[in-house]
Structure formats: structure tokens, C-alpha cells
Design a binder for these strands. Sequence first.
DNA 1: AACGCAAACAACCGCACCAGG
DNA 2: ACCTGGTGCGGTTGTTTGCGT
Length: 262
Amino acid sequence: MARYPRVDKISNGKNTVKKGAWSADEDRKLVAYIMRFDIWNWTHMAEPAGLARTGKSCRLRWMNYLRPNIKHGNITKEEEEIIINLHRVLGKRWATIASRLPGRTDNEIKNYWNTHLKKRCAQEKLEMPIACDVKVNSNPNDNLTHQNPSIAILHPTEATNLGSPRDIPVPHASSLCPSHEVVRDDKILVNRWHSRGNMMGEDANLWEQLQSLKDFSAIEDLEGMCPNSGSLLPSSECMYSDGVYFRDSQDDFTIDLWGNWS
DNA sequence: AACGCAAACAACCGCACCAGG
DNA sequence: ACCTGGTGCGGTTGTTTGCGT
């Protein structure tokens, strides 16, 4: 869908900086410059490249549209599933999700999520019970940034609207998105994995998808999500080898893939 | 045919991180 | 330890397109 070539020009004090849609001529100039001189400094490249653009604008255009091997449109069913699965684990870390999908950009995945998947998952989520909560602790004393939240685990018995772990409803596995979602915003919700004994049919499908998450190296990403008081946990303490390991400021918790807490 | 609305998506903006001085 | 510039990321905006009325 072509964007109307709005041509806003603002002055940065010295030069006029163009904003809005990129023309084919500008694209050619940027590509030609990078092919010849490579990317050496986005801020200072624009002018010698003959572009009245900010470095950020040039970078964005290159990263999202001009660099080689970019795929546009036609997100496949497989890619869609990967996006949903990774979003469940990683939240809105679009760049990390994009890194698992060759040829796709963070911007494209973000747009696709917002226009196609968000509503669908929200709808499915409404239909599914949530088993337990895992919160991202925003303790100001932790000196954490939003990218390095500490993780506080609520034991199933403490989770909202829940009784004993035995009372936790086994989520229906027909849709993984709502029933096993991990949302990284202000809080993370992790549903209890199905017990191994129940793993049949759709549950088995769930298990396969969990395995696929492992295949996509969710391990490294989870490591990055599990700092403790500002410092990252050693990788061995935040692995995804046979479960999800978290630590909060008081205690360590493990949720293994069979749903056991320890 | 004209209009209004929602979807789609390219691009901008603000903020955080990081490295170097 | 602090400052500064460059870069990357996620949120948001603005415009076109498509569809229904």
C-alpha cells in the first residue's frame, strides 16, 4: 500500500530535512551509497549520499525496506504461529522476534501483530482461563529498566482468583495464545503447563509447540528477561532446558514443563 | 456515485542503551 | 563518574485503500 508522498520539510538550522514517504530516487541514492561506501555512520551518511534526510530516517528505510533479502507481505501460517509463540514468551520484543524470522523486520511484525493477531489473541484469551500469574516486578529499588525487569513469581495458590494448585483449571489447548500466554508489559502471565499425564491430542500439540520454542532459542531470550536486582542471572539459572526458571528477590522458583513448581 | 469508517502499513518520535572521550 | 553522540527499539501517527451503506 503506497503511502502518499507527503513532503514535509523542516529546517534543522543548517539544512532542510525532508520527511514523509521516500521516493524511488531517494531509495536509489541510499542503496547506491551503501553499496559503494558501506554503512559507516548513519548520521553523517545522508548528506554525502545526496539525501535531505536524517540519519534515523535513512537507517529506518534501509533496515525495513532496502536492505537485501527483505520479504514483504504474505506472512505465512507458519510464520504467524512463530510470531504468536514467540510473542507469548517474549512479549513485545519485536526485534528479537524478527530475528527468528529471516527476511522479516521488527516493524513489519509489529504491524502484523497490531492489525491481524492482537484482536484474535485477545478474543481467544477472553475464552480461556488463566492459571497463574507471573509478574514483572517494578520495584523501584531494583534500579531496573523496562528492558530488564525482575521477575516475581506468584505461586498458583497466590494467583488471582485461584485456590489451591489443584483448583487451577487445565486450560484448553485448542489455542495456545490465550491459555499459555506470556505477556511482557507490566506483568507476565504464564499459565501452568499441562501435566504430562494429560498430554494427549491437543495437549500433545501444545507440547510440540513448546518444543518448537526451544528450537527457536527461547533460552537466550528468556535469559535476558530474567535479571535479578539489576544483574542478569547466570544462564544456568535461567534455562529452558526442562522448564522455565525464574528468580525473584526472595526466592527461586522453577516451573518445569510438566507444570510442577518448586 | 458519494460518503464514512476501518484496516493496513510506512514512517516518525521519544527514550534507553552503549561506547568512547 | 560524567557527558555526548550514535544506534536500536517500541509506541504512535498519518495517509491510502478497500469495503459497506
